[in-house]
């Protein structure tokens, strides 16, 4: 919104010299709407295209792409949705992805909250360097880690397992999550916990009753971040999950592209179904981020 505000301010000042103040405000409002709508159209069009392609016959998609609503409705069909479930193991992949994401989120949020709290509240030697080093380990590209991980995972018998792939996702998301929680706990004044101690709360109680509720917005951010890492991961899943029945959605959908045939309709149908959980998660958790800010009564 900041950018669109600036654009509409620019437009307003452009016409500013000629018009009286009230009309200038109206011009500004109209300009704001224009910019916002334009942005939305640009952002939403690919999603619209995805939805359209998922309900069109194959010929329409590859030969005469249609996007105008009336034409879309005329050729409407849900064959692609049926075939991803009927011809393929889609529900299994979906379940795999959801389970892996849940394990990754729970572990990552839990571990990073504890780590962030420890790094801010417990004094030990080399604390700052340790915290910085954590972020350093986030700098490696996943593909660099994937091959050694494959070797290790195979030895440990973790290939084709939920735990194995979750651990890989946690390994990618945890450094940044820990760093984020470290930073977040620095913004939570220790006075709240001191107040709890003076009220008779043990260190554990003050953590549970005071620090955790106050760290909720940070935890939500970590959850969203971890979900994004896990849900979108292609590299790790491709390498650590060779078995088709254990695959998560991104590499599974990749198999819709075959040597001489691309199942565009099914890819789009799968993509549409894949985008539901992120949408729900962000929609749900966004509320608690805002709630966290509302109750942050400082």
């Amino acid at each position: 919104m900041v950018f669109s505000d600036r654009v509409s301010n620019r437009i307003q000042s452009f016409v500013g010299g000629i018009l009286p103040y009230q009309e200038r405000l109206q011009v500004r409002k109209a300009a704001l709407y224009f910019v916002v709508i334009l942005t939305c159209v640009v952002m939403m069009f690919p999603m619209y295209w995805m939805l359209v392609a998922s309900v069109q016959p194959y010929d329409h998609i590859v030969q005469t792409p249609t996007w105008f609503p009336t034409q879309v409705i005329a050729a409407f069909q849900i064959d692609a949705y049926i075939s991803v479930f009927a011809d393929r193991n889609f529900e299994r992949w979906y379940l795999n992805s959801v389970l892996v994401a849940i394990i990754a989120i729970v572990s990552s949020v839990g571990a990073s909250t504890l780590a962030g709290y420890g790094l801010t509240r417990v004094q030990f030697r080399g604390r700052k360097n340790f915290a910085r080093l954590i972020l350093f380990s986030y700098m490696f590209p996943p593909i660099l880690l994937a091959f050694p991980q494959y070797q290790i995972w195979r030895r440990l018998g973790l290939l084709n397992s939920y735990i194995g792939i979750s651990v890989a996702h946690i390994a990618i998301s945890l450094p940044f999550s820990m760093w984020m929680m470290w930073k977040f706990f620095q913004t939570v004044p220790i006075a709240y916990e001191e107040a709890a101690w003076m009220n008779g709360a043990s260190q554990f109680h003050s953590f549970k009753d005071v620090a955790i509720p106050m760290a909720k917005p940070g935890m939500v951010a970590v959850a969203i971040f971890t979900f994004a890492v896990s849900w979108n991961d292609f590299t790790m899943a491709t390498i650590l999950l060779p078995d088709s029945s254990m695959q998560t959605l991104p590499p599974a959908v990749q198999t819709f592209v075959q040597q001489n045939y691309v199942y565009w309709g099914q890819i789009m149908a799968a993509s549409t179904l894949m985008s539901i959980p992120p949408f729900l998660l962000v929609y749900k958790l966004q509320e608690s981020i805002l709630e966290g800010f509302r109750t942050g009564g400082l």
Partner: peptide, 12 residues
């Protein structure tokens, strides 16, 4: 019992 400068009521 202690009362702090920054009031330190639990916001939640």
């Amino acid at each position: 019992a202690m009362v702090f400068q920054r009031i330190a009521l639990y916001p939640h």
